[in-house]
Design a protein around this nucleic acid. Structure first.
Lengths: 229, 229
DNA sequence: TTCTACCTAGTACTTTCGTACAAGGCACGG
DNA sequence: CCGTGCCTTGTACGAAAGTACTAGGTAGAA
């Protein structure tokens, strides 16, 4: 606690809104000067950055950005980089969304309108290995027993390999096996092999049911009146 | 306006919570004494009641009840009984959900904690042909231009025949054509015929995509702390 | 009655999906 | 080096899905 963060700590800010992303990055830089901060504006960019810097300790992830509709991106991150922590940054403060994010392995949840000092507190807590939630949402942490199917879903998704995850995503978009094969530059037979493994891991019997499960990850963006950008 | 409701007006209260259902029914009876009020505790019960009483003018529909996850029940009602008005009664007051309900043909939205006199006002407004929303949610009515894909989805779903709707529901549950056929006591070929028609009406190419569209109707129940029952 | 929409079912066919079993290449950690 | 997990592909097959066209029965509306 006395040495807030080790020198090698690195962090990734993922938000598709340029102004907010910059503000967030600057805020982090102010609060934690010794931390390396990178940026990404889309989910592919996040994955690319993590691939290039596997030692990244923490990602501040916007729930809604290109290539990431809802919790799917979080699940993908958790599946690909289990060792990297994820704090969700979202305009939503629906307790249900918060709890689902935690179920899927987020270690923090940051409403977008929080203060800078809160930001610092949250990041330090998380780097210290704790889960951080805004004060108003703390109770959400407690109904773990009453948690819906998201726990099981998260566990199952975590067992998917990266390629299987991609196949599942494309399947959920309604693509044919052949189309998926073309997109991934592999044979259709390989797609089928992946799907068979996916079905087994998710405990479903066909692509429609797998699609249903995966679609539960999508969280709709609430539409607010204030057009502050 | 001077004669609030015609003598033959009939109304259906659909809520799976017995206490709340009774309270709602009594409240309606107090406010509108000349109205026939029926009750239903599940979506099948609602459909059965409407089948028995096609002249029902208005349904007070809970968004979450057995057989009805989210907006699917509303869409089914609108598809089967276009002439019957529907007021959504829900614990949710998410503006997005409100607007989606309106997109799918609801003519009113009633938060569960509203006063009795508000209830009367709402019902009278709706019976007079107006759309009624609680004061705090009126703005939601205005962003019709910015409406998401729900308008198009609602239009497409409204064109589905009752049987097609059932087939789509079962398909979205991940059932095989054969299983759907068994459930509906028809031949598998007939199921396929329905599905082909459904795909065309929804402008999709296979069951996975149709399932995706239909699943957009599901609205998650927010989980509140108060366990008042 | 005639028209229309819906539900149903048929034949015949192609395409897609999914499974079973086997196996080579590759990267990584013990 | 060896084991392990992942990705890939193969063969072969059966099951399911989807299309195209036709058509009878029924019920309600014009």
């Amino acid at each position: 606690m006395s040495s807030p963060e080790p020198p090698g700590t690195s962090l990734l800010v993922a938000d598709d809104h340029p102004l907010y992303r910059s503000a967030l990055r600057r805020a982090v830089g102010d609060v934690l000067p010794d931390v390396i901060v990178r940026k990404a504006d889309s989910l592919p960019a996040v994955l690319a950055s993590l691939a290039a810097h596997p030692d990244t300790d923490l990602v501040l992830l916007d729930l809604h950005m290109p290539g990431n509709a809802g919790l799917a991106g979080l699940a993908a991150l958790r599946s690909l980089h289990p060792a990297t922590g994820v704090i969700i940054v979202s305009a939503t403060d629906d307790p249900l969304v918060v709890r689902r994010a935690l179920d899927h392995g987020a270690v923090g949840y940051l409403p977008k309108r929080c203060d800078i000092d809160v930001l610092g507190t949250a990041i330090r807590s998380v780097l210290a290995g704790q889960v951080w939630l805004p004060p108003g949402l703390r109770p959400a942490r407690r109904d773990e027993a009453a948690a819906g199917g998201d726990r099981a879903l998260a566990r199952a998704l975590a067992h998917l390999t990266p390629q299987q995850f991609k196949v599942l995503e494309l399947t959920a978009e309604g693509l044919l096996n052949k189309q998926i094969a073309d997109r991934l530059a592999i044979q259709e037979r390989t797609v089928k092999a992946h799907l068979t493994a996916i079905f087994e891991k998710l405990h479903v019997r066909n692509r429609t049911q797998a699609c249903t499960l995966f679609r539960q990850l999508l969280v709709r963006e609430p539409e607010y009146e204030d057009a502050c950008d």
